[in-house]
Amino acid sequence: MSSAKARPFRPPRSPRQSPRGRSAAKRDDDPGRKGTGAAFPPAAPVTHKLHKLLAQAGLGSRREMEALIAGGGVTLNGKVATIGDRAGPGDLIRAGRRTVRPAHGGRVPRVMLYHKPEGEIVSRSDPEGRASVFDRLPQLRSSRWIAIGRLDYNTSGLLVFTTDGELANRLMHPRFEVEREYAVRIMGRLAPETVSRLTTGIALEDGPARFEELLDQGGEGSNHWYRVMLKEGRNREVRRMFEAVGVTVSRLMRVRFGPIDLPPRLRRGQWMELDETQTRRLLDLVA
């Protein structure tokens, strides 16, 4: 990467291994604390548009949530909601089978980093019964973990999860061109003309693709490592690009997603949650 770019966000905390191979660091789900007994009456709760709250809960985009509300698919405190309704702490929102309770004002979303090993899927259900990354994460009460991007079954590395649909969209949508960086192992070295093809553009079945950067990282014996960076996340894109030039990837690991690096002490199968300061910094970086 060019030295002119902003330094990637590196969470400083290291995870603690739990008996089940998960990080023991957790954040309290209590939405707030009791009052301090001040003489002044409490401020009125902050409310937000209903479609915004549903999008933040990860149910879909704001436009999709507006359509859901307009179709009568959402209730607010037991009544069918309408476009323009607002909700805040204490309100009960139901969208289909999902129940959403707005958090107290000022509360930041939760963000989780997970070091995915090979042999897990990024899906909540699988007809083949394979292990899922969601089985590793702590359970949530009134929201759900949203995977920011995916990794295929045989790819390891950084996965980012959040409870905020808008943050997920900001990091995943192609128009924002968020960088993804991978470590790639192949047999042998790439010829200069192959490097040129991969960085200038090759044709895939779903459109042209190219690496923004492709750096030689060396290797031992017949194994050779490269670092590649691209600004989109199509299905198996890195593997398909190498296959298009006649090269098979023997190992693939994502080491960075946007401003977030894979923490060096985060072992495979471990997760760690960003604290409030780190989460606010991330929100500022992607704003």
Rank of each mutant, 00 (worst) to 15 (best):
Q139M: 12
L167P: 15
R27G: 13
S222Y: 08
L158V: 10
E64D: 15
R254M: 02
I260Q: 05
Q217L: 11
L158R: 04
L158H: 11
A87V: 09
G258F: 06
R170Q: 15
G207E: 13
N223L: 15
D206N: 12
G165S: 11
G96I: 06
E166R: 09
N154V: 13
A168L: 04
T199N: 01
A81T: 06
P12R: 06
L283N: 00
D126T: 06
E212L: 14
A39M: 05
V286T: 11
A203M: 04
W145C: 10
W225F: 13
S142Y: 08
P263V: 08
A168D: 14
G165L: 09
R256W: 03
V108W: 01
L283S: 05
P89T: 02
S18N: 07
V255M: 10
T279Q: 10
M172D: 04
R63A: 02
I260E: 03
E64A: 14
A38E: 11
I69T: 06
P138L: 02
D152C: 10
R227G: 07
E237K: 05
P127H: 00
P89G: 04
P174A: 00
A147T: 08
L285Y: 00
A25W: 12
G119H: 07
P264C: 00
E64V: 12
M253S: 09
F134P: 07
R136G: 05
F40I: 14
T200R: 10
G201E: 07
P117G: 00
A43Q: 06
K26S: 03
S250A: 00
E212M: 15
T163N: 13
A131R: 09
V249K: 01
P45S: 12
S156I: 09
N235A: 05
K231D: 13
P192F: 14
T200P: 02
F134K: 06
P12D: 05
P41S: 00
R141N: 07
D29S: 02
D275M: 12
M65I: 03
D275A: 14
R86C: 10
H104F: 01
A67Y: 06
T194Q: 11
E276R: 07
P42Q: 03
P192Y: 13
T36K: 10
P259M: 02
M65S: 15
V286P: 05
A24V: 14
S132M: 08
A39F: 02
F9V: 09
Q217S: 12
V160E: 12
F242L: 07
R63M: 07
R281I: 01
L198D: 13
V238W: 03
G78E: 10
M187A: 08
A4W: 08
R130F: 03
G78M: 06
R27Q: 15
R98I: 08
G60R: 01
G119T: 06
R281S: 07
H48N: 10
A287W: 04
M253Y: 00
V80L: 07
G258T: 08
E166D: 15
A24R: 14
E177Y: 13
R63L: 04
V286I: 08
I93C: 05
